[in-house]
């Protein structure tokens, strides 16, 4: 099939790529833009490993066609650190509180669900700075983790929320 030109706004950069129109956002991110931080676990919308943010909403990139995205803002795990930083012009990339908290709480074991988990968690915290355990469970219910039993993930989201609130 013939490739078509496509412009995406990803992690604050406008990127034009040639991609086959039936290829998913997941494929274009990983294979055309080398953003391999976003993972695929099933490519059927069942596991959540491919979760990215489109205009701040957590979506499954394996079920999204780039054409549908248009000029919306796409954020992947590679853009999370910047998204957590202060004003532009700063010197170093600062980690997002979620990244720091996931490391401190041991919330990433094999790390494969982690990029998707982080994006779902960010969508949650952006809309709800003080989520309850139930809010967290709901927010990550589409992100399967086979390693942790989710306990450390809740603790990390909770800790990140406190960090973000400055507590």
């Amino acid at each position: 099939m013939t490739k078509q030109l496509l412009t995406l706004n990803v992690n604050g950069e406008s990127r034009t790529v040639a991609a086959e129109p039936h290829h998913t956002l997941l494929e274009v991110l990983r294979e055309e833009l080398q953003l391999t931080g976003t993972k695929h676990g099933c490519e059927l919308g069942e596991c959540g490993a491919c979760t990215v943010l489109v205009d701040g909403v957590a979506v499954l990139s394996c079920l999204t066609l780039p054409m549908q995205v248009g000029d919306a803002i796409v954020t992947t795990v590679e853009g999370l650190a910047d998204a957590g930083a202060g004003a532009p012009g700063r010197e170093a990339r600062k980690l997002h509180p979620l990244q720091t908290a996931f490391a401190e709480e041991g919330a990433a074991q094999c790390g494969y669900c982690t990029p998707g988990m982080l994006m779902s968690a960010k969508a949650l915290l952006d809309g709800n700075p003080s989520p309850t355990r139930d809010d967290m469970a709901q927010a990550i219910s589409g992100n399967l983790c086979r390693c942790t039993g989710y306990t450390a993930i809740y603790e990390a989201i909770d800790s990140a929320a406190r960090m973000a609130r400055g507590g």
Binding site: G37, T38, E78, A81, L95, Q99, A103, A108, G111
Partner: peptide
């Protein structure tokens, strides 16, 4: 001691290279 795993950071920034991430 309760310390972050040394390989956490690669997982958390998306830079860990799993086999399928190799091109």
């Amino acid at each position: 001691k309760r310390l972050p795993k040394v390989n956490s950071w690669a997982h958390l920034t998306g830079s860990a290279k799993y086999a399928d991430d190799l091109f």
